[in-house]
């Protein structure tokens, strides 16, 4: 039963992941990546893995996003063709 509730969530995750290809602003792309990882936290929680969920939430959503933002601050923000 819980699987059918998760279908719209997974669709949102796929849409966000695909939209990374078309976004030209790299900061927005990184924020969208954080959204995708946050949805995977919910999937991990429904797979009965709270340990992995808490690690993913703190390390991937928090730290990786910070490192991406710092790297974009040191380089350029726009993607050129």
């Amino acid at each position: 039963m819980i699987d059918y509730i998760l279908i719209p969530l997974v669709l949102v995750m796929f849409a966000s992941a695909i939209s990374v290809i078309f976004i030209k602003d790299l900061i927005v792309a990184v924020i969208v990546t954080a959204v995708v990882d946050l949805i995977t936290v919910v999937l991990f929680f429904f797979l009965q893995a709270p340990d992995v969920a808490i690690t993913q939430a703190s390390i991937v959503v928090g730290l990786t996003t910070f490192i991406f933002v710092v790297a974009i601050m040191r380089t350029t923000r726009k993607e050129e063709e």
């Binding site: 709270p50 340990d51 969920a53 808490i54 690690t55 939430a57 703190s58 390390i59 928090g62 730290l63 910070f66």
Partner: peptide
Amino acid sequence: IFVHGHLTPGGGFPGGVIIATGVL
């Protein structure tokens, strides 16, 4: 989180990352 790692979900790595977030 890292003191209660053997009783509840969590552990050394998330606890350390949360401390680093405070410094940030």
